[in-house]
């Protein structure tokens, strides 16, 4: 009896919770979250990457939604409306857009906004960045090889000045990801000099790509620069094995053995067939 009550209670609870869920889903809009990042890649292309996500059990990307990009000063100017891709990202290319406002210090302020829909809440985010340049170069002193990085910021009237104390990360570019080998801050001249990692393998010519990166800096955002140099340890192309057990062509001894054996047997078969023909031809001779 007692257990029956318990069961009824549990079933009742489940029904209530389920019903509650149904109503909740009808009435309550889902929360969205938008984030934005300024990225300057190694081609010096500046973009704003807005990422839109929806709260389900956890945050998941929302694709095919319209994100508005504004340039913000005293008033907001709409720059563009861009749809998010399958990763939930809307990418706005800054370029030389005259609508973008730059203040006397060189700061640009942006706002991204998602309006929401019948089932989703809207969200927005602001960001301010200062443009900068990062240059990678290589030089050799005696036998030691160096990588040098120079960081400059662009002021309000487009004049450049070195950035000091900027954190720069150094990577070697791999097939799938970047391998971090150093982290350094710029000196008073906006420069960093580090030793080249001589044990790093390159491609067949020893060529490898060094990436210097400022990552999500409060002022400069993400700035990336690349340089190629043939200082890596060359990885020789392994000659494909020929005529092995695992290859298309068989080892020669195997081919010869097989041909010898088969031809020996089949030769005798042919000889015997020839004899049968001779039997047929020899019918009259006594």
């Amino acid at each position: 009896m007692k257990s029956l009550y318990k069961h009824i209670l549990i079933i009742g609870l489940v029904v209530i919770i389920a019903a509650g869920n149904v109503f909740a889903q009808k009435n309550k809009k889902k929360t969205t979250r938008i984030s934005v990042e300024y990225v300057k890649d190694h081609n010096k292309t500046e973009t704003l990457v807005a990422k839109l996500r929806v709260k389900e059990k956890r945050y998941i990307s929302l694709n095919d939604a319209i994100v508005k990009f504004y340039s913000v000063s005293d008033t907001s100017v709409l720059l563009d409306k861009i749809r998010t891709n399958k990763d939930g990202e809307a990418i706005f290319v800054i370029g030389d857009n005259p609508k973008i406002f730059k203040d006397s210090l060189g700061f640009m302020a942006f706002e991204v906004e998602y309006d929401g829909s019948t089932s989703l809440k809207g969200s927005n985010k602001k960001i301010a960045v200062k443009q900068s340049n990062l240059e990678v170069s290589f030089f050799q002193k005696d036998t030691i090889k160096f990588i040098e990085v120079e960081a400059n910021e662009i002021g309000g009237n487009n004049q450049t000045s070195p950035v000091k104390g900027l954190k720069v990360l150094f990577y070697v570019k791999g097939t799938f990801s970047l391998f971090n080998f150093a982290k350094e801050k710029t000196d008073n001249k906006g420069k960093i000099k580090i030793e080249f990692p001589v044990t790093m393998p390159g491609d067949t010519n020893g060529e490898l790509t060094i990436v210097a990166k400022v990552e999500e800096d409060d002022i400069y955002g993400t700035v990336e620069s690349m340089g190629e140099i043939n200082w890596g340890i060359p990885v020789p192309l392994v000659k494909e094995k020929q005529r092995g057990l695992g290859d298309t062509d068989a080892p020669l001894w195997m081919v010869y053995t097989l041909i010898t054996l088969l031809s020996a047997v089949w030769f005798h078969y042919l000889y015997v067939i020839f004899m049968i023909i001779k039997i047929k031809l020899a019918k009259r001779s006594f």
């Binding site: 984030s35 990422k51 998941i60 990307s61 929302l62 694709n63 939930g88 970047l178 999500e216």
Partner: peptide, 23 residues
């Protein structure tokens, strides 16, 4: 700072799988 994008690589690849279906 957006903490999620710190993990550069992760953010670029994982949500592809989840994102497609979820989206």
């Amino acid at each position: 700072k957006n903490k999620h994008s710190r993990r550069q690589f992760f953010s670029k690849t994982v949500p592809v799988a989840i994102g497609t279906i979820g989206g």
